[in-house]
Structure formats: C-alpha cells, structure tokens
C-alpha cells in the first residue's frame, strides 16, 4: 500500500508502510504529560471523522439491520415481520441471480482491469521518449474523469447492434453483427468492457507508482544474474509489486462489488436478469417497489459477503504478498 504515498526514504519505509495495519513509530515525546496531551489532540483530530462516520455510516448500518425485520413502504407505519424479509430474499430467484452476477462480474472485471493496468504500466515505464510516456499516461487516465453515467450513455450507442460503431468495425473483419445489448452474454460483456474501460486507469496509476518504487539496483542485480525480458518481470517485478497489487485489487474489488451506474444506464439489468447486480436489486426493491425492509435485508446480506471477501483477501495476502 506504500505506493500511493510520496516518500523520501524508500524502500525501507515502503515496507513499513505496507504493513501499516500496525501503526508506525510514535512521533512525539514519551513523557507522561506528552502522552496526555497526545491523547487530547488525537481525540480532537479524530472527532470530525469519527462523529461523521458514526452519524452517517454506523447509525445507518444499525438502522438498516433493524429495518430488515420490518415491512415498511414509507407511506404507512412499519410492521414487525421477524425473519420474513430474509426468507423471501433467500427464495427470490432474482436476488440469487443478481448476487451470482455480482460475484462473476467482480472476478472477470477485476482480473481484466488489473491485468490490463499492469501490462500497460510495465510497458509505459520502460524506456521511451518522455513526451510519449506523458501522452500514454494521460490517455489511460482520461476515462476516469468522465462520469460512469455519461460513459454508459455513449457506449450504448457504440454497441448498438444494427448501427453501432463497434459492430461496424467488426463487420470490416467479416464478423457478423453481435447482439451486444440484447442477449445475456452480450450485455454482460458490454457492462464489463465499459466498466473496465473506465476504471483500469486508476489501477494503472497505482502500478506506475509501484513500479517507480522498485529500486533500479534490483533490476541491475537481476540482469547480472542473467534474467532478461519476461523472466525479469516474473522474478523481480511481480514479487516486488505485490503490495501495490494488494492495494489495487482490494480497491478494485470493493468498487466492482458496488457496480451500479453502468448496468443501470446500459441495460437496466437485462435482458432477463443477466446484468442485474446486487446493489441494483437493493435500489429496485427500495425505491421502485417501496419494500424498504426487504431492501435492507438484501443490504445486510451483501455487506456480510463483502466483509467476508475482504477478510479472506487479507488472509491470502499474508501468504502471497512479498515485503522487502
């Protein structure tokens, strides 16, 4: 995780920052009065964030959990229904499919996003004229500044079956028109492509930062040992980049799990339920059908799943992430 931070004394510091789940060296004096005033300052500094989060995140989460046991349509008073909402949600095939979609989406989109970002970052960071490097970096970063909603709007036209530009190019290669937005496979592909198109730039920048923090001596040593080309990247770049990869993948997964804008604008979740995601189901049941209790129940389940995935990720990372 070190890579997002400008640093003066890498790479030792980098390793320390990576393990940063444990706090670093306390910076100020160790006297009793020092500790006392530190504590005061700490609470003052933390107050806005902690109070804000308590009010706008923790209380709502608790409220959500409570709401999951009620039937409530906003118009009339809520009634307690016990586990009914959970029972209904678990049986609802649409909910089940949308959760599976979300997981499949996360796996494919994150793999594509990270793979693409890493490959491009490695290619950009090797020797080339400075102006070209600047151009490539800016180009890959560019989609990030657009809103997912507007990207989805124009992508819808590009992927139109009869008149879209994408199929026109494919037709040049002799490929018959692909029904992108009207078949389950096609629309899932479009949602993934559009999502990755817009988001790979962020992982790309993280990888650029990560690559920059790998000391050149490491490569010099590796090339003395005869490692060249591919092998150099497999044996040197990948292991040394693993902290960045962990950060990039955690962030990519968290954001992919919450994908909403692209399918909402591109396909509205269809055809069938093929591009309906978990958060779309929450939105639909809360704000289109006014089933706030049911929506909360889905939300609670989703949150538990996300937490489990993230915990598993950190578990795995202990085994696979290499710290210098």
């Amino acid at each position: 995780m070190s890579t997002t931070i400008p640093r003066r004394d890498r790479p030792k510091q980098a390793a320390k920052a990576v393990k940063a789940v444990k706090p670093g060296t306390p910076a100020t004096s160790q006297t009793a009065s020092g500790r006392h005033s530190q504590r005061w300052l700490a609470w003052i500094f933390l107050a806005p964030t902690i109070l804000g989060m308590g009010l706008f995140t923790l209380v709502p989460i608790a409220a959500s959990v409570v709401l999951a046991f009620f039937r409530w349509d906003i118009i009339s008073a809520p009634t307690f229904v016990g586990f009914d909402n959970f029972a209904e949600v678990v049986q609802d095939p649409t909910v089940r499919v949308s959760f599976l979609n979300t997981i499949a989406f996360v796996i494919v989109a994150v793999a594509l996003q990270l793979g693409l970002a890493l490959a491009l970052a490695v290619m950009v960071q090797e020797k080339m004229p400075a102006w070209l490097r600047t151009f490539f970096r800016s180009a890959f970063f560019f989609p990030l500044i657009l809103s997912a909603a507007s990207v989805s709007i124009f992508m819808r036209y590009l992927f139109n079956e009869q008149f879209g530009v994408v199929n026109w190019f494919l037709s040049l290669a002799g490929i018959p028109a692909v029904p992108w937005l009207t078949t389950p496979g096609g629309s899932a592909a479009v949602v993934i492509l559009v999502y990755v198109w817009q988001n790979f730039g962020f992982s790309f920048l993280l990888f650029i930062g990560g690559l920059a923090s790998i000391p050149m001596e490491t490569y010099e040593a590796a090339s003395l040992d005869g490692a060249t080309g591919w092998r150099k990247h497999v044996y040197v770049t990948l292991p040394l980049l693993s902290p960045t990869t962990l950060l990039a993948s955690v962030m990519a997964i968290i954001s992919a799990l919450q994908v909403f804008d692209q399918p909402y604008v591109l396909t509205r979740g269809g055809p069938g339920d093929s591009t309906r995601t978990a958060v779309m189901v929450i939105f639909e049941s809360a704000f289109q059908r006014l089933e706030f209790g049911e929506a909360s129940a889905i939300g609670v389940i989703l949150t538990l799943i996300i937490m489990a995935i993230t915990a598993a990720q950190f578990r795995l990372s202990k085994r696979f992430v290499f710290y210098q």
């Binding site: 964030t49 902690i50 989060m53 706008f56 995140t57 923790l58 209380v59 709502p60 989460i61 409220a63 959500s64 709401l67 968290i254 799990l257 919450q258 909403f260 978990a278 958060v279 929450i282 939105f283 809360a286 706030f292 929506a295 909360s296 939300g299 609670v300 989703l302 949150t303 996300i306 937490m307 993230t310």
Partner: peptide
C-alpha cells in the same frame, strides 16, 4: 474506519 469502506452506499442510503 477501514471496515466502513466496504459498506455499499446503497445499504445505508435509506437510513
């Protein structure tokens, strides 16, 4: 604080 990052905004939006 870190854990709150994982909660989708859709989950808390109603409260």
């Amino acid at each position: 604080v870190l854990a709150t990052m994982m909660v989708p905004v859709q989950v808390t939006i109603v409260p």
